[in-house]
């Protein structure tokens, strides 16, 4: 949670960062006039506190790269697209948070919410590998990442709680006959693999 209320400002940095983000996210961020309709509707607003979508845009426009790339809103944003649907100037801040996540990854910054990052990486990686998402495979890949990071931090309590909550959830799905035992694969994985290689910037 950031307590910061003043952004770092520099003219050149501001021009550079706003142009880069406006271009990559394809959002007209310069037309934000802080009406805060986005802030009023943001479902994670209570969790991110001070940092609302309009303030994230402001941060970018003022060129505070360090804060913009790694803050609570970027990592908590659920991409529900409420902010963009309501924005009178057509700015989808959810697209901006997606761009910022990608940039943070490219600059190899340690993500503020590592579990969120692990989930999305595991999802894309496993889905590309099999051509389809296998729920059991995805959760195994995700849990492996999370447990490994717990182990590195020697956080055994978190480890135990992760294992027990996932096991309980898996068992309850099994009891309802909603846990799929088979594996689903698409031959399209080869085409997808070539496309992923082409994009160059994807998850590593």
């Amino acid at each position: 949670m950031q307590e910061q209320t003043a952004f770092q400002v520099s003219g050149d940095a501001a021009r550079e960062l706003s142009a880069e983000i406006a271009g990559r996210s394809e959002q007209p961020i310069a037309s934000c006039y802080q009406c805060r309709r986005c802030a009023a509707g943001c479902p994670v607003g209570e969790a991110t506190g001070y940092l609302t979508p309009d303030r994230l845009i402001r941060m970018v426009l003022l060129g505070d790269r360090k804060m913009a790339l790694n803050n609570d809103l970027v990592w908590r944003c659920l991409s529900c697209y409420t902010c963009g649907t309501r924005c009178p100037n057509g700015i989808h801040t959810s697209r901006v948070t997606e761009t910022l996540k990608q940039m943070a990854r490219e600059e190899r910054l340690e993500p503020l919410h590592p579990k969120t990052d692990s989930f999305h990486r595991s999802f894309v990686k496993t889905s590309l590998f099999w051509g389809r998402m296998n729920e059991v495979g995805l959760m195994a890949a995700y849990q492996a990442r999370v447990l490994w990071s717990c182990l590195k931090r020697r956080d055994f309590r978190e480890m135990r709680s992760e294992i027990s909550s996932q096991t309980r959830f898996g068992l309850s799905l099994f009891r309802l006959g909603r846990l799929h035992p088979g594996w689903t694969v698409s031959r399209g994985r080869r085409e997808l693999g070539r496309l992923a290689a082409k994009s160059g910037r994807h998850s590593r």
Partner: peptide, 25 residues
């Protein structure tokens, strides 16, 4: 026939190109 994963809400958080390429097939 032989459809693949659409990338769901995760692909767009990693890569703008894959977000389109996965459902495109």
């Amino acid at each position: 026939r032989d459809w693949n994963c659409c990338g769901a809400t995760s692909a767009s958080k990693l890569d703008d190109f894959l977000e389109v390429a996965m459902p495109a097939r």
